[in-house]
Each structure stands twice: as structure tokens, then as C-alpha cells.
Design a protein around this nucleic acid. Structure first.
Lengths: 217, 217
DNA sequence: ACATTTTTGATAGTAATACTGTCTTTTTGC
DNA sequence: GCAAAAAGACAGTATTACTATCAAAAATGT
């Protein structure tokens, strides 16, 4: 398998895979449709991705790497772990506001795809094999880095990993619920959804950690 | 579509669909394989279920109905909403311990299926249509009933629906993580996993609600 | 500038999937 | 015992998820 980020065709594949995953959903997405959309062939896509599962995995890993990067640069040089955690939450929710100098990845659509389809990347029968092969490294590494901020706030907190992973799972889930199953969420769609979500996540996380949320900034 | 619970074949289909979803995973599961497993034909299965998506939806709804029923009967006559919430958490986690007089549904395996595949029932492209058609009623109703317990504890709590839905999502997620992606969870596999999970969920939920968890019982 | 290598496209082909249709046999309910 | 419903036995189709082969185009090194 060759790295899609190394060639023009590869980038085109990535760009339109995001758009098509969003438009069709994971189940209806096929390499044939993608090939048609980019005026290429199935075979050429198979040269970059074994199948659509690995394509989704690639996209979701890219997304979590991006979130991790944002959290890292925006909390660098900040000492107070509570402020660091608040920044992590803000960046997680607003990740798609900032744009890397990268034309072929539309983060806004990618975020939608990760919200809707992201869980399918690891809710698979071969999860143990793929985990052994390191395919979930990005997400695990992000979860770990936030769990370390949590431990800076309370070194004795016994559930740092679960609180961290739940923060990410909950963030995407609650957006999905707000948009599609509003009876499952207390936040509602609209232009304030991101701010409301940040408030709620901060409320939950800081309550669990016995701290008052940092509302400054 | 006929009700599978009304006929012997229907029950056999349900029984073995659970086993096969567990053994093969949602993606590799096919009606052909199921037909072979029960010595019947694809066509006969299609008389009960439109496709495997609706089959999964049926199973997951059955599961959530069962959890809701357990919570209801076990918290009936209890006044203290904090104890009720604790009982809800216990029943949610230990739902598969109790067995309804129902031979064709193995709750233990069904729980595994709901943990691994449950999210795929509503992470679909047609979520809005299916929601309109009432296909997610069971889960929404369960989430609502627990959100009402939360509001009994704190009538001013602004995030009762999200806390409730997150409780259920988190419970299944954290079991999945503990078993397959241990770096994403603070609880670990083993015979204490359910008790550990109950402790953690209680800790989270009662902290968020500013209450001490009820450890009695 | 030209030969070489790499990448892409064109085309074909296969096994499996996700169904639908029709007809016969079996089961069941009265 | 008979009518109706349910199940089985086929057969068939469009699509999916690939793999294989070979030619054309593009990039690369010298």
C-alpha cells in the first residue's frame, strides 16, 4: 500500500472519500462510486487502500491526530492543568474551525464523518488483531495525553483513562444525538451547539474532578 | 413482515441471529449463513426481517426493553431517587444475570452483541427517517425514564437527558474498551469487571449530580 | 533528451452478497 | 378433513468487493 498523501491521485482520493462518506454513509459508499467521482478506476483506489474499512480508519486517525496536534500547540506553555483541560475540550469541539494549510482535507466534513461513522472503525470483528497491529494508535495516544492532564489536576483520580475516552466519545455522540436523536441529548442544534457542548462537557468533567470549571477566556 | 416472536421459526431465527452476530460480527453476518445454521432458507428469514440492519435493530430494541423492564420492577416502591438511580446502574450493568422465562434469547450473548454492534443500529444514513418511523423508541424511552430519576434528584439539573444517554453509552463502551482496547479504559477485564464498572459509573453520575454515591446494599 | 521505472487507466473476470419471484410442500387452526 | 398460512426449494438478478493483465502516461535519473 502506498501513502495517499504522497501523490496527487492519493490526495484526490482522500478529498473525495471524505465527501462521499458524508454523502452516502459508510454502508452505501463503494470504491466504484468513489472512482467515478474522481474519474479514476477502482483498481487505482485499491492501490492506496485495501478496502473502505481501512480508508475510514485512515480518515479517523487523521482526524484524531489533528485534534491532538491542536490541543498540544494550544496548551503549550500553559502551566495550570485545569486551563489545559479546558483548552483540550475547546479544541476538541471546535477542531474544525482551524484549518491546516491542507487543501485536500475538508475538516468540517471530516468531522461529520467521524461523528457518524467513526465508531465503526473499531467496532469490528478483528478489533484485537488490528489493535495489535497498532491501527488505533492515534486515538489511544490522544486519550492518553488528555488522561495525563487529568492526572495533573488530581494525581489520585482513579479513572483518568475512562474519563478521557468518555470525553471524546461523548462529545461526538452528543452532537450526533442533538442532530438526529434529540430525545437523547440535552443540547440542541443551532449555532450555539458547539458552545453549549463545551459548557456541558466542562461541567461534567470538572464536576467529576471536584473542580469548578475554568470559565475564563 | 410478521412478528418473529409469534412462530417457532421466528424464535429460532432470533435465537441463532444472536449467536451468529456474536460469532461473525455484523459485517460478516449474512442471512444465507443464518439460514444454513437453522436449516432453513434465506427466503424464510426475509419473511420476518427486511435485512440484517432491521434484525439488529430488533435485537437491540429487545435488549433495551429488557433493561428498562428490569430497572422498573427493581426500583418500584422505592422512594429515594438516589437509590433508584443506583439500582438503575446496577441493573444496566448486570442485566444479563437475570433471565426471563424465555428460552430463545440468550441475554448474555445478546449483551455482547449490543456492546459490539449496538451503535450501528442508529449510526446509519437513514437515521432521521427511521427515527421518524419510531424505530428507536425503546432506547429513547429508557433514556427518558432514567433522565426522570435524575430530575427527581436535582430538578434543576440542566443536562438530564445527556447524562442519562451518556450513562448507557459509556457503560457499553467501557466494557468494550476494557476487553479490546484497554488503553482507553480505567477498568480491566476479569471477574470484577461488572462491579468495577458499577462503581465507576456511580462515581461519575453522583459526582456530576453533586451527591455522594449510595453504597448501601 | 531519452531510457527506465513507476504510476495510472482500461478492461475483464470471479465469488459472494443482498435481495426478488414463483411454485410446491408442509403445517396449522377450525 | 379442509382452507389458509407458513415454510421450503429452486431460480434468477444487480451489485459488491475484490483480483489479474496489460497498455498508456507520467515522473525520474543521468
Amino acid at each position: 500500500m502506498k501513502d495517499p498523501q504522497d501523490s496527487e491521485l492519493g490526495k484526490k482520493i482522500i478529498e473525495h472519500s471524505i465527501i462521499l462518506f458524508d454523502e452516502l454513509g459508510f454502508e452505501s459508499f463503494t470504491f466504484k462510486k468513489l472512482a467515478k467521482a474522481i474519474n479514476s478506476t477502482e483498481k487505482s483506489i485499491y492501490r492506496y487502500f485495501e478496502n473502505k474499512h481501512f480508508m475510514l480508519l485512515f480518515l479517523s486517525s487523521w482526524y484524531w491526530e489533528w485534534v491532538k496536534y491542536l490541543i498540544e500547540i494550544n496548551s503549550r506553555n500553559i502551566e495550570d492543568p485545569e486551563r489545559k483541560l479546558k483548552i483540550a475540550i475547546q479544541n476538541l469541539v471546535n477542531a474544525t474551525d482551524e484549518n491546516p494549510g491542507n487543501k485536500y482535507i475538508n475538516e468540517h466534513i471530516l468531522h461529520k464523518v467521524v461523528i457518524k461513522e467513526g465508531g465503526k472503525a473499531y467496532h469490528i470483528h478483528d478489533v484485537d488483531d488490528e489493535n495489535k497491529a497498532g491501527l488505533f494508535y492515534s486515538y489511544k495516544s490522544l486519550v492518553k495525553s488528555v488522561s495525563e492532564i487529568i492526572l495533573e489536576i488530581d494525581p489520585k483520580f482513579p479513572y483518568s483513562l475512562s474519563l478521557s475516552s468518555n470525553l471524546f466519545e461523548m462529545a461526538n455522540n452528543q452532537i450526533y444525538f442533538a442532530e438526529h436523536l434529540p430525545k437523547l441529548s440535552s443540547i440542541s442544534c443551532g449555532k450555539n451547539i458547539n458552545d453549549d457542548l463545551i459548557k456541558m462537557l466542562s461541567y461534567f468533567v470538572f464536576k467529576i474532578l471536584d473542580r469548578k470549571p475554568v470559565f475564563a477566556e
